[in-house]
Design a binder for these strands. Structure first.
Length: 390
DNA sequence: TCTGGGGTCCTAGGACCC
DNA sequence: TCTGGGGTCCTAGGACCC
C-alpha cells in the first residue's frame, strides 16, 4: 500500500536563528532584511511574529509597522543549507526514498517500512523526536496515500503537528476543504474562484473536466480536477525536465547609468559562470531580465549554436541582449541573468568545440572565478579592465 | 507598505520542415 | 491560386512555490 510522508520544518530560517541565539527564543524573529533595508521582503517570520500579522513575502517596511519590536535579520543561507543537509540525511534513516522539495521540506516514501518502525504514525513520531533531539527544530508531518495529499495534511498540522489521512480517505478529505487549501492555486487562480463563486473544493468537484479546462486552461483544469479528488499531482512525480540557473539583483535605488548596469551584469555573469563550472552544466541559451521602476518586467533570451564556455562569452551575449532590450532613460530596479536548458557537461567534451585560445582563457577564468569567491571586489576590477571598459 | 531571489511549468505565437 | 496538418524549436510573458 502506497504511503507517503511530507515533512516540513516549521518557520525554518527563523527557528534556526532562535536556536543559534537563545535570547531570541519566544520573541518575534523576522528573517529577510533589516528594518531600514529598502525593497526587502520577509523570507520567514517566527510564530511569535506571525501573531502580529507578519508573513512571508511581506515588505519589511510593512512588517516593521506591524511589529516594531521584532528582531530583524538578513539571514545566512549558507548556514541554513548546512542545517538542511543534516536533516535530509536524518530523513534517510527512515526511508530509502527521500525526495527533497526545497530547503525545508521533503517527501518520504514509507511503503514497506512497517516492520522496522511500526505503523506510519509511529514512524512519524520517531522522526519528529529525532529531528528535535539532534537539531532542536520542530517538523510538521502529513501522512497520506500520495504526495499531494500528504503535503496538504502537513500544512494543516503546523506547527509541530502530525496529521494522517487514512488510506482511501483522500477524496473525502480534499472535498471537505475550502479552496484556500489547494496547493498550486495562487492569487490569480483564487480570483477566478471568487468570480465563479467557488468556495470549497467540493464546489470544484461538482464541475466537469471540460468546464474546468475551459475556465482555467487545459493543464490547470486537469490539475484542479485531480486535486479535489485527492489524486496524486504530476508535479511531484517523474524526472525533472529542463534545468536552468539564474541570478538577479534588486537595487535599493533605481539605476539609470549604462556603465553601472553593465557592471552589475558582469557581476551576475561571474556568479553564474562559477556555478556552471562547479556543477558541470552546459548551456546554449542566455536570458536577461529587466524590471523597471514601475515594476513592469521584460525579458529577452537567445539560443546560440554553441554553448557558453567562457565568462567573456557569456558577458558579451548578455550585454548584446541588454543593449537591444533596455529602454534608455527608464529607471531600472532589478537586473537578472540566466542560463536555460542546461545539459549535463560532465562527459568528456569533443575537443573540436574549443580552440586552443578558448581553452587557455577558460583555464585562466576558472582560477580567477575561484579567487572571486573570496575577494569579489578585486576580481571584478580585474575583469573590467581586461574587458577594456573605462 | 509598494512588491526578494531562485526555481519550475504553462501558454501562445512564430519560424521552419515534411 | 489563394493556402492543410503535424512536429519541433524558439521566444516572451505569467503563475506559482518556498
Amino acid at each position: 500500500m502506497a504511503c507517503f510522508i511530507h515533512a516540513d520544518l516549521d518557520a525554518f530560517y527563523a527557528s534556526v536563528e532562535q536556536l543559534d541565539h537563545p535570547e531570541y527564543l519566544g520573541k518575534p524573529v523576522i528573517v529577510g532584511g533589516l528594518p531600514d533595508d529598502r525593497r526587502s521582503v520577509v523570507s520567514t517570520a517566527s510564530y511569535e511574529a506571525r501573531k502580529f500579522g507578519v508573513h512571508s513575502a511581506m515588505p519589511i517596511a510593512q512588517a516593521v509597522k506591524l511589529c516594531p519590536q521584532g528582531i530583524y535579520l538578513r539571514g545566512n543561507m549558507g548556514h541554513y543549507r548546512e542545517v538542511s543537509e543534516k536533516i535530509m540525511t536524518l530523513f534517510g534513516d527512515f526511508s530509502p526514498e527521500v525526495q527533497q522539495l526545497s530547503i525545508d521540506e521533503a517527501f518520504l516514501d514509507i511503503a514497506g517500512t512497517e516492520g522496522l518502525f511500526g505503523p506510519p504514525e509511529a514512524l512519524a513520531q520517531k522522526l519528529k523526536v529525532r529531528v528535535r533531539k539532534e537539531t532542536g527544530l520542530t517538523v510538521s508531518v502529513g501522512i497520506a496515500g500520495n504526495k499531494y495529499v500528504a503535503k496538504i495534511a502537513s500544512g494543516m498540522s503546523k506547527p509541530d503537528g502530525l496529521y494522517r489521512i487514512a488510506p482511501g480517505g483522500e477524496e473525502a478529505f480534499m472535498r471537505s476543504l475550502p479552496v484556500a487549501n489547494i496547493w498550486g492555486a495562487g492569487e490569480k487562480t483564487r480570483e477566478i474562484f471568487r468570480k465563479y463563486g467557488l468556495k470549497t473544493c467540493d464546489d470544484i468537484y461538482r464541475l466537469s473536466l471540460e468546464t474546468l479546462s475551459s475556465i482555467f486552461g487545459d493543464a490547470s483544469g486537469v490539475f484542479l480536477y485531480r486535486a479535489v479528488r485527492g489524486e496524486a499531482a504530476a508535479a511531484f512525480d517523474g524526472e525533472r525536465g529542463s534545468h536552468s540557473m539564474s541570478a538577479e539583483r534588486t537595487f535599493a535605488y533605481d539605476l539609470y547609468d549604462n556603465f553601472t548596469m553593465e557592471s552589475v551584469l558582469l557581476n551576475l555573469c561571474e556568479g553564474l559562470m562559477w556555478r556552471l563550472l562547479e556543477e558541470k552544466w552546459r548551456s546554449r541559451t542566455v536570458s536577461l531580465k529587466i524590471r523597471y521602476k514601475d515594476f513592469t518586467t521584460e525579458s529577452a533570451q537567445e539560443t546560440f549554436g554553441n554553448p557558453v564556455t567562457t565568462l567573456n562569452g557569456l558577458y558579451d551575449r548578455l550585454v548584446a541582449l541588454f543593449r537591444k532590450k533596455y529602454r534608455a532613460g527608464k529607471g531600472v530596479r532589478l537586473l537578472g541573468a540566466g542560463l536555460m536548458n542546461l545539459e549535463w557537461a560532465g562527459l568528456p567534451q569533443q575537443a573540436e568545440l574549443f580552440d586552443k585560445e578558448d581553452e587557455k582563457e577558460r583555464l585562466l577564468e576558472k582560477v580567477i572565478l575561484g579567487i572571486n569567491q573570496k575577494f569579489p571586489d578585486a576580481a571584478l576590477r580585474r575583469f573590467r579592465s581586461r574587458l577594456g571598459e573605462p
